[in-house]
Design a protein around this nucleic acid. Structure first.
Lengths: 215, 215
DNA sequence: TGCCCGTTATGATTCGGATCATAACGGGCT
DNA sequence: AGCCCGTTATGATCCGAATCATAACGGGCA
């Protein structure tokens, strides 16, 4: 969902700018503000010794990091600017006031949180029951769902907007494993690789109907 | 959070009973109702070929399965009654009306959803960055957080209310692995096993303060 | 009391992803 | 053009959880 920037400003939101590569907040930091992205891309990530795990990627118009803000807890992951980023930041108290005065927006916000839960539930499901290839396809499909249609190339092919390293950090696998599995997935016809970019055919009408039936 | 049962009834909630072992809904089923447990325990679970994955366990007073209900989607997991269960079921439209008329409850509900997101985010973090023993301890700690204090035995020891099979289904590991790792964790002093029950020492004040600092 | 079955337990073996090493490619920058 | 570094790529090896087999324990129930 996207809150009207003017409305956020009416409630006291301030603009903040971050340069590419800088942290909007650290893992473990206290969450005081509601953040909505005006411009740029933000990655929420858990840093590990050997590798990272990407909790989410957020684009212009999206908000992030709300759960610990609402709960007055600490961030369970850090937020890094993948590009130069401009955000609107609104203190918790004012954000709550905004919700209080706008039921429809509050309900929309609730809905957005529910989508986030379903997203994570699906990840947990696939990570625990599925094999590595399913994990990769699942992550690709989730990327497709949330991204603007501008990512489509010819013939309904979706250009996966992530490097193999990104897919590794999204799936919890290693780069080498992702590379090898992508190779296998290409053999099986699940994806196409052109000029090193990963393409996936998206959803022809017939597939959509099928999916609807047994999902 | 817990909604006042009388209030739910005022909005048209009906009581439903399920016998131990029966399904409240299936994975893939359409989500029409808001469910709150009056009596009993419910498990949300993804069934796999070889093993299952437990998405959550819910006790009296808790609600579950709200995300797909709010989003008018299908359930990403099945719900099974672990005991005889009585629930209050409220159709989506009426539930939304209830939220609309009670901002404080709506905000509490929002808060509960945020906690759920944080819970799942932490699971994903540990599952992807941690080793199996961390996964197990993490799950045990999360069980402790959400369960009533009645589960305490002597000396601040928490009796883990789950079989090794349950821990396997919660962590995505196999039973044998859980058994062996529990053995190792006992050697390391992380847990104590008495009469086959797993005990964990909980949180002495010093630990709590420490956790607060670097979490 | 005795049966049954889920749980706990332990050892042997397999298998697949992680790890380590090494190198070619290619876009961005000076 | 030339350099640099992240990305892609491939092979060899390691390691640890999964798997398979087998058995003892113990609570619930007839």
């Amino acid at each position: 969902m996207k809150f009207n920037p003017d409305l956020l400003c009416d409630y006291g939101a301030v603009r903040k700018n971050y340069r590419k590569g800088s942290f909007l907040f650290q893992e473990g930091g206290h969450a005081f503000y509601f953040f909505q992205i005006v411009q740029g891309i933000v990655k929420m990530v858990n840093a590990g010794d050997a590798h990272d795990f990407i909790q989410g990627i957020f684009c212009a118009g999206e908000s992030f990091g709300e759960p610990p803000m609402i709960n007055e807890k600490q961030y369970p992951a850090a937020a890094i600017a993948l590009t130069d980023v401009e955000v609107l930041a609104l203190p918790r108290k004012h954000f709550v006031a905004l919700l209080k005065n706008n039921f429809d927006l509050h309900l929309e916000f609730t809905t957005a949180l529910c989508q986030r839960i379903q997203y994570k539930a699906q990840l947990l499901r696939t990570f625990n029951l599925g094999d590595p290839e399913e994990r990769i396809l699942n992550v690709i499909d989730l990327l497709q769902k949330k991204l603007p249609r501008t990512q489509y190339g010819m013939d309904d092919y979706f250009i996966v907007p992530a490097t193999r390293q990104d897919l590794a950090d999204l799936t919890g696998l290693r780069v080498e494993t992702v590379i090898r599995k992508i190779g296998h997935l290409e053999e099986k016809g699940e994806v196409v690789v052109r000029e090193r970019k990963i393409l996936r055919l998206y959803p022809r009408q017939s597939d959509a109907v099928l999916a609807q039936h047994h999902e």
